[in-house]
Design a protein around this nucleic acid. Structure first.
Lengths: 346, 346
DNA sequence: TAACGGTGTGGTTACGTTCCCACATCGCAC
DNA sequence: GTGCGATGTGGGAACGTAACCACACCGTTA
């Protein structure tokens, strides 16, 4: 007995099925539904109707196999749990969806092995392109060698020529540091990720440049490189405070800012009276704590959108030279920064 | 002239290429690399070597086409920009990656049209399964009709039988409300999403049940349903404060909590002296503001992991009955709740 | 009238993989 | 020595789509 429930296991409807129902060939059905090539209005209408009635869903794999390219874009970010990367992904997804592309999203923990595995997966899927926050140059190289377009976001690492979207990290670092120097600080601690990424290197460079501009010598004991998710991060910040005696802290990413802020709170240090703090990347908590945190804001979601747009543009115009989009960070001065405690005064 | 750079446009390597190099047939090459069926050690070694040397990457589309199923899981969440959904996605991605599945992630804005479009896309990709935070029952119905496994997360909406991962929302709402009632509050405002979702309905039901348990009648003027991303949310909260005169607020999701908190700060109301606040969903800012926010915490990432695991389990054992995983929320009492202001005292 | 371009259609093939089947060669037991 | 199962291999079909080609029919023009 056949009931409607039997349809739950029905074989997927194909072009051939529709063609049979509409009394045409599969070729005509393909042309009618894809809109390429000649089809009479009558045939098109019949085929459309049949497709609707049977619940036709085109088989993306068959299409990809035939056309040698898909509408899938691979995206690999360092840590989906971090608001910054989640925002990037949200921007990318939004733009891709509007262009009717799909996003395959992977969180690779900045691990080169996982990153390379992702690249291989994207290759296997014949991804139309890949957007990556690179931790290593190997993935981009592999993809480029197979002719897959790559866009690097947040930092640049590839040996090969490829599109990239970054912010002017040096300017961000410089603005933040100059702001503190202008307030009178001379001992500014720098908390920075322990990597060779261009993002952190740029911020570090900006920190140095601002000191040079102001004619202030940097005490290298004030610079503290910290690995991502290092369990001893807060302890090391404590040590820095004790040993290097800074009057201000510049935390070069939102995670380090959170950790620094927690240490300061634990020590009951008043912002900005006892210590000034500048963060990088304006996440929501920074305007919820008291005082609000002075910050170098980056247009996170917009970076994602731009990266996706670069990829889409290259799909249209494969020959165009590699584009580098540099977005501007914005220093937003809020309550967490002020003059240093007057040494020995009162 | 042929240079190494020419390889950038090389035709992808196929099984046939490898077979030719190793002196076998494509069938044997397939068996050797996929590990299914008989292959001599010698042949396997030769084929492995050839695959490595030529940089073979299997074509996922061809495989999917042939096998009629893929290693892709479709994931549709309401709003990737919200920490809660980002956490869900992170948990899902982690578990899928460990099982060597890929996640196609879409943010559908809780829009039924977009949600249905997503479902169609996942169908086209022959997704092995779909995980969704549903806004409408149509998507799950469509997928189920085509034999695609669906897991609902955070809320249940499907007419069809499918796996689901939720938390005990009623208990969460009840615990939060009972906590406030025990402190002596009798006028507790409820900020809740204006939907028919089981999540919010459950929290609302818990709110009511706690009142009943305590023998307190609910003033319906204290209940404020607010649409997601409503631009007038804060204004309506202000109005509620003025007109209904609550002594405590229970905000049934992290967005409403943020908005309520901002209104309270603007009014310079002291937590918990002038007003108590309980939030739902423990996001990072809640332990950064002063005082810390009392909250009903939900295991966000774990919910994602469990959802993915349900899907993977069903792939192994297609016949198993629909599973409903109910995780427990946890009331964490912190500084934002205390006794109500003593009416007319002092 | 013949040639021609535009329109419309269907047959066939190819994309790369897997899987079924046929077949061949063993060693071993009866 | 015949049968049989285990091992190993290759041929060929199939998955569903899109592209190419051949063809057939029109109306128009030389």
């Amino acid at each position: 007995m056949t009931t409607s429930a039997d349809r739950t296991v029905a074989r997927p409807v194909t072009l051939a099925d529709i063609a049979r129902v509409a009394g045409t060939s599969a070729s005509t059905a393909s042309r009618a539904l894809s809109g390429r090539g000649y089809v009479s209005e009558a045939a098109r209408a019949r085929l459309r109707e049949a497709a609707d009635r049977l619940g036709y869903v085109p088989n993306a794999s068959a299409r990809t196999l035939k056309q040698q390219t898909s509408r899938v874009v691979g995206v690999a970010v360092s840590d989906l749990g971090n608001q910054f990367y989640a925002g990037l992904a949200a921007g990318i997804e939004q733009t891709l969806r509007e262009a009717e592309y799909q996003m395959v999203l992977v969180s690779d923990n900045s691990d080169r092995v996982q990153e390379l595995a992702c690249a291989r997966t994207f290759l296997a899927m014949r991804a139309a392109g890949v957007i990556i926050t690179p931790a290593d140059s190997a993935a981009a190289a592999l993809l480029a060698r197979h002719g897959v377009d790559v866009v690097e976001v947040d930092r640049r690492l590839a040996d090969v020529a490829c599109d990239a979207v970054v912010i002017d990290n040096e300017r961000g670092g410089r603005d933040a540091t100059a702001h503190l120097l202008a307030l009178g600080h001379r001992r500014i601690a720098l908390l920075v990720a322990e990597t060779d990424w261009t993002s952190d290197a740029g911020r570090r460079q900006g920190y140095r440049a601002a000191h040079e501009d102001a004619g202030v010598t940097v005490d290298h004991g004030l610079i503290l490189p910290i690995r991502f998710h290092a369990s001893d991060a807060e302890a090391r910040i404590e040590t820095l405070l004790d040993e290097a005696g800074p009057t201000a802290i510049f935390a070069a990413n939102n995670l380090l800012a959170e950790q620094a802020w927690k240490v300061l709170r634990r020590r009951r240090l008043q912002l900005p009276h006892d210590m000034s703090l500048v963060a990088f990347d304006d996440v929501s908590w920074m305007t919820m704590v008291d005082p609000w945190i002075t910050v170098v804001a980056q247009p996170t979601v917009e970076m994602g959108r731009r990266a996706a747009r670069l990829l889409l543009r290259r799909a249209d115009d494969p020959g165009s030279p590699p584009a580098l989009v540099v977005l501007e960070p914005a220093l937003i001065v809020r309550g967490s920064t002020g003059p240093p405690p007057a040494a020995g005064s009162v």
